[in-house]
Design a protein around this nucleic acid. Sequence first.
DNA 1: TAATTTAATGTAATCCGTTACATTTTTACG
DNA 2: CGTAAAAATGTAACGGATTACATTAAATTA
Lengths: 335, 335
Amino acid sequence: MATIRDVAELAHVSVATVSRTLQQPDRVSPKTRVRVLEAIDHTGYKPNLMAVKFRSGKTHSLVVLVPTVANLFFARVISGMQVAAAQRGYTLLLGNTLGNPDIEAEYAKMVQTSQADGVIQLRAHNPFPADMRTTDGLLPMVNACEVRATTDCPTVTLDNRAAAATMTRHLIALGHRSIALIKGPHASPLTQDRLAGYQDALREANIPFDENLLFNGDFTLQAGYEAAQRILTIGQRPTALFCENDETAIGAVQALKEAGLRIPEDISVAGFDDIAFAGFCDPPLTTIAQPAEEFGQTAVNLLVDVLTGNIKKAPKVIMPFELIVRKSTGPAPTY
Amino acid sequence: MATIRDVAELAHVSVATVSRTLQQPDRVSPKTRVRVLEAIDHTGYKPNLMAVKFRSGKTHSLVVLVPTVANLFFARVISGMQVAAAQRGYTLLLGNTLGNPDIEAEYAKMVQTSQADGVIQLRAHNPFPADMRTTDGLLPMVNACEVRATTDCPTVTLDNRAAAATMTRHLIALGHRSIALIKGPHASPLTQDRLAGYQDALREANIPFDENLLFNGDFTLQAGYEAAQRILTIGQRPTALFCENDETAIGAVQALKEAGLRIPEDISVAGFDDIAFAGFCDPPLTTIAQPAEEFGQTAVNLLVDVLTGNIKKAPKVIMPFELIVRKSTGPAPTY
DNA sequence: TAATTTAATGTAATCCGTTACATTTTTACG
DNA sequence: CGTAAAAATGTAACGGATTACATTAAATTA
């Protein structure tokens, strides 16, 4: 592999001139410029970006910590990140953490070992040791999607509480009084927030909150399927089921159908996220749409702004959501 | 950030000794070893891996070119890659190429610019210029999932032709004689191979091949939906529909149901890939299961073997498939 | 104990591109 | 034409870890 010195030799110039030809072409006379460019052509020279990154101390790489890439919502977020990263000249390093804090910390070390400039965390965790702050007092991190209110780093999130309340109000408006909720993983702020929104809407409508209508899940199809089976075993069957994400809802629908229930005639089901499959299931799923790609783009832009010192204090960006009413929710059955 | 020199100074040794303490601890006396380790602790020293990579010329990074991360089959493949990459001490750089050869070439440049050691390509493309071969005459690349027979780099693939034939035979065995096929993108070898397998099975059964039963798709839900709508407009409606992937099949099922058809009573539908949703749709989808995670693992292992010189010629690995019969296929209706 | 081998440590070059500073060449203008 | 200013180019240090080779210290053997 040809180095800058090979080019310099062939073009009868110094390495500095070659470097300038590429970095600041107007600081080189036209004749030498063409000579150098020809030499580059001849040698097939490509700058060793590892050397550049080492020298500059900047890698222009961002670590993205994703609980799992096998989640369509995250897939969309990541797509958005890649668009923004490419625009800003950054590369993404994807870390599939499986929600494991050790793996998160392992990936975060890439910042400490100068392999990456910053981290985008899709969970409400801080994988850094305490002393990793930049000169501005910020961590080289942004937190997207799942966010804890107490964090002091830039965040991009949804008003999950308001969104869940909106969906719950939709169900209440359809006459539902007994609305089950399949939650996400226990510790997740997402879960907490959506639960809070659900409770808000119940309270507004003077519907007593019933803890027995809360079911645990983990955002997977399987979890939704199993939770729905449990729901069918409780005494008074709820007339509606709000699932904290679409995968859960689709799994639940499957179990409910297998049990012979009609949706939405016998029971309404609602999801959250509006993944592509939501529009292609039977019945199409009523859900909350989130601007997933824009989450990713915003997260990258915020992080790059932090890294370049464009931001002095951590902004909290709130993205809009939209209630998408399809066919899986309908009027509460009257007995 | 502390450097190796800071550590050396604090421990009153040379930088060489510090380096040896970490690389070859037995070449350092026990007393100095503990002294150095203490100094490392005190300074919080973390080796600058950018410097290491630059010095060694090896990045221990692999570029993965994925047409789209928003595809659940690829998501599983990538998960498998990450497992294997972690085991072998490599990092993955994910390139979402959207099937665009320019973007592929852009990412492949990361190898030429020493940002990555090799490439895993999930399409049957060679993004490299001709002169990128290693000393063994191999490209630093493996080709997984979608593979063209003529390629000379290591490959991991399925016998797509045999798999498609297996599925088609399953449909024929159920009495179907008119089987439509929704293909993938035109240029894809996957599409070609699965079409060939479909034709093989027809020929075996002496069923004439009818070009009018071929429909174009692009492996998305939407494409399946639209193709199925087109199928409903042709004169003699087929009794079975074989889709070249599950997304297509699920999209098609939706369109067929909306048109009032029952599955499988009126029309059978089969997919390919066995994504998680295949088991959670209505009806659950008959499909071909592929060992997606193992595709990824094998691909990474092959590439690392190429890079380390463990492999002199390019192996062609064929992975097993399995016919998964669920509820979306049934006996052909008798008119 | 002297001589020799082995272990431990140190010195300095190296990887390659960037850039501050130095030097040379060209241009501009009196 | 000569000198000052501007433009073009060159020299060499730098970044941080690794490692070949050199040197010193410790262990072994005669």
